[in-house]
Structure formats: structure tokens, C-alpha cells
């Protein structure tokens, strides 16, 4: 079976003349189906840059990224956008929920982008809010929810199109320890199966217990890969 994401020799520079050191340098690894992979490292180590490259958001200067048997950086911008919509679910660090839309409407946005009508999209989104435990809060505005609840809305939004890959950027950064652990455990339980993969960028050691593999980065380099406690 092919990997969910195959990353080969990826390098990314910032700045105009590629002087200094790259943000990500010659990184190769793969994310397997059924796996929860962490990318950890100190601030400025290139974690977020790497996450952006493997999720089709930031073009690398070198290397290739294969998702669904396609080198995503050979796709046109529109094809890449379609691939992201269909295959990748995003949970951003600051959630980026629309403050003037209800919880349910926020979850429905990927379905709207996929061409569903609002009634269809809302009907399809409702079960996902139930899955993340926000039953009865469909009509609330995000501002009325706690940080953990907003996080769960963002997760429901990422899951609603049933993508193969779930990408989370510092999912526990704004949560207390217990809530953070509960959220990650929840994602593992509800989302992960042998046809899906999860990539989490974090430097929160409290959630390491859920990882299958942990990828350590420093100065843009992949320094080591360790098996997590879940294995």
C-alpha cells in the first residue's frame, strides 16, 4: 500500500537569493496510512514550513511531495486547491472560524466550497458537530464557545469532507493540559483508521503519548525519527 504522503528531498529557502540557511533542508520521510505523526522541534526549526509544504500550501524549492499518487507540486493551482479540498483537512492553530457564522455554518464551509447548497451542507455537517460533542450548540456563534469547543468546531470542519489526511498546527497551544490531551485522543479515536493519516505539528510534550512516530527537526533539518509510545 502506498504512503498517505511521500516526501522526498524537500528544501525551502526564504529570501531572494537563497543565501543563509534554508528553512527546510533536504527532508525526506513518509506518512503512513493509519498513522499519527508528530513533527516537533523548537521555534524556528522549520516545522510549520514543512507542514505547509506537505499539505500543498507552500511550494518547495526542491523535492517532491506525493499525495494520492500525484506529485502535488506539479499540479496547477486550481488542481492543487481541489486536492487540498478533497484530501486534506486543516486545523489551524488559531482555528480561523468565521466569527459571524454559526458553529454549524462554520463546519459547513468546506461542503459549500465543494458545491453543496446550504441546506445540504448544513444537514451533512450536523452529525460532525455531534461527533465532536457539540450537540445543541449548532446555532451559537464561535465567540460564545470556549477555546476547546472552538477547537472542536475547527476539527469538525476539517473532518466534514472525510479527507485522507488531517493536518493540525499546534492543536493544543491555546488549551490547558487536560483539554489538549482529550482533544488529541478524540481525534485519534474518531478520525484515524487504516485509510487515513494525521500529521500534527507541536512542541507540547504532554500529548506525545498519542503519537505513532515523532519526527524531530532542528534548523530545518530532520534530526531523528522516533517511535512514539502508542506503537
Amino acid at each position: 500500500m502506498s504512503a498517505a504522503i511521500d516526501i522526498q528531498n524537500v528544501t525551502r529557502w526564504f529570501g531572494e537569493d537563497h543565501t543563509g540557511r534554508p528553512a527546510v533542508a533536504h527532508v525526506s520521510f513518509e506518512v503512513r496510512f493509519g498513522e499519527m505523526l508528530y513533527i516537533v522541534g523548537p521555534s524556528g526549526s522549520g516545522k510549520t514550513t514543512l507542514l505547509s509544504i506537505i499539505s500543498g500550501i507552500l511550494r518547495p524549492d526542491e523535492g517532491r511531495v506525493v499525495i494520492a499518487e500525484r506529485n502535488i507540486w506539479q499540479l496547477t493551482p486550481d488542481e492543487l486547491a481541489e486536492l487540498r479540498l478533497a484530501h486534506i483537512g486543516f486545523v489551524f492553530q488559531d482555528f480561523h472560524l468565521f466569527p459571524r457564522l454559526t458553529t454549524l455554518e462554520n463546519v459547513a464551509i468546506p461542503l459549500i466550497l465543494a458545491g453543496k447548497t446550504w441546506p445540504e451542507a448544513l444537514a451533512l455537517s450536523r452529525p460532525y458537530l455531534q461527533v465532536v460533542g457539540l450537540n445543541g450548540k449548532e446555532e451559537l456563534m464561535p465567540m460564545k464557545l470556549s477555546g476547546g469547543e472552538q477547537q472542536r468546531v475547527a476539527i469538525a470542519r476539517a473532518m466534514v469532507l472525510q479527507p485522507q489526511i488531517l493536518v493540525l498546527d499546534e492543536p493544543t497551544a491555546s488549551l490547558d493540559g487536560d483539554t489538549g490531551r482529550r482533544i488529541v485522543q478524540f481525534i485519534q479515536t474518531e478520525f484515524l483508521n487504516d485509510q487515513r493519516a494525521i500529521v500534527i505539528v507541536t512542541h507540547d510534550a504532554r500529548i506525545e503519548e498519542f503519537a505513532h512516530r515523532i519526527l524531530y527537526m532542528e534548523d530545518g533539518q530532520l534530526t531523528r525519527i522516533e517511535k512514539g509510545k502508542t506503537i
Binding site: D78, L83, F90, H96, A114
Partner: peptide, 15 residues
């Protein structure tokens, strides 16, 4: 930032 999030999720430029 919301438009950026939409773009990341999969909205195309022309959309």
C-alpha cells in the same frame, strides 16, 4: 485571515 483559511482549505483564486 478567513479568506486565507478558505484558500488553504481549498477555495480557488477565481472562487
Amino acid at each position: 485571515d478567513k479568506f486565507g483559511a478558505l484558500k488553504a482549505i481549498g477555495a480557488k483564486n477565481h472562487e
